[in-house]
Structure formats: C-alpha cells, structure tokens
Amino acid sequence: MPKLDLKELGVRGVNSALHGIPNGANEPDWLITNPMGQHAIACGLDAPIEVTINGHVGFYCGGMNQQAGITIHGHAGVGIAENMMSGQVRVMGSASDSAGATAHGGLLVIEGDASSRCGISMKGVDIVVGGSVGHMSGFMAQSGHLVVCGDASDALGDSIYEAIMFVRGKVASLGADCVEKEMRPEHLAKLAELLNAANIDADPGNFRRYGSARTLYNFDIDNADAY
C-alpha cells in the first residue's frame, strides 16, 4: 500500500497526490501517516480508492468526498465529511461538531460519539453514530438518515425537513417541529440495512424513529413562538 507521510509532504502534497489518482488506477489503497490533526486532509477526493489515515485529523477531513472510502484511525475535528456526495467515511474514534454537515450522499460512520450539530442540514447522506450525539443534531436536516446508537442531547432535529432519525438511547429533548413517529416495518428494514453497512451490531427493534411534524413548512403567525 503506497504511503503518504503528511509530515513530509504537508497537506497540499498529500491532497495533490490523492487528487491525481485516476479512476481505475492500479493501486486503490493508500495510507496517510502523521496526520497530526491537520485540517482538510483527503478532502475533495473523486476516485474509488480506499484511504487509511493513521492518527487524528482536524477540520473537514474527507470534505466533499466523492466515491472514495476514508478510514480514520483516530478522532476527527469539526465538519468531518462535510458536504460528502458519495463514498464512505469512517471515524474509529469520536467526531467534533457538525459531522456530515450538508452532506448529499454516501455513508458516514462514527464509531465513538459525535458532538453538537451532527448531520446539520444533511441533504441525503446516511450517518451512523455508534455512541451519542450532542445538541442540535439533525438541525434543518433535509433528507437522509441519522442513526444514533447512544443518546441524543437537547433539541434533536430542530426544524427538521424530510430526514429520518433513529435513536436507541435517551433523547434529552426534541427541537421545534420534531416528533417521534411510528416505527413501521420499512423503517426497521432500512435501519437494519444502515447498521449492517456501518458494521455496527445493534438490534433495530431497540430504536425509536423521529422526524418532522411538518407544521412549520409554511408560515403561520400562530406558530411564531415555535421558531
């Protein structure tokens, strides 16, 4: 497996090397060493390659990812896999704020906890968190799925649109226009699929489903106190 030493190459050197890999390249597996918590590592990838990062990463690792699989053997800073379009990003530790923010597609797996605003404005991505999520997670979430195997902090799903959230543990409070919904067979099946894809062992039957009450979709002065 080719190795990219970030200490030696810098972020620009590492990203340049990864961006230069064409689709269908002979060597699909790459290793980044010494990430040193640097920002914007492996962002903007657009090739079906597998990138392993040995260590912690800073902000926006895997940002706007397309096609690539990125595995971080450490913790991740703010905005892991922000605006991801496709592919998969896996954090084996925990993630800071705004994990998967605005992401349109792909799968983001956080084996540990995720901090506040996990899945903020998500637009189709699937996010599976092995631990708990911080406050305002799923804020203005538009579509996709957020699976939380632990607990959710305050204001879960505030102003949520059509995204679907599954939580196994306690929910401290729900945000504006977010309600618990019936878990129907199709939801159990989808959840099982997501847990399987994330390689997380959990019983879908222990989760509850949350989504939008859709009462704030069109302005009504009598709902002003909800905003």
């Binding site: 972020v11 620009r12 914007a40 962002c43 903007g44 800073g58 902000f59 940002g63 706007m64």
Partner: peptide, 9 residues
C-alpha cells in the same frame, strides 16, 4: 480553515 479546504478542493 474553511477557505483552506476550498482551496485544497
């Protein structure tokens, strides 16, 4: 940091 990310991409 965000600007740096946009530049990298």
């Amino acid at each position: 940091i965000k600007i740096r990310e946009l530049r990298e991409i």
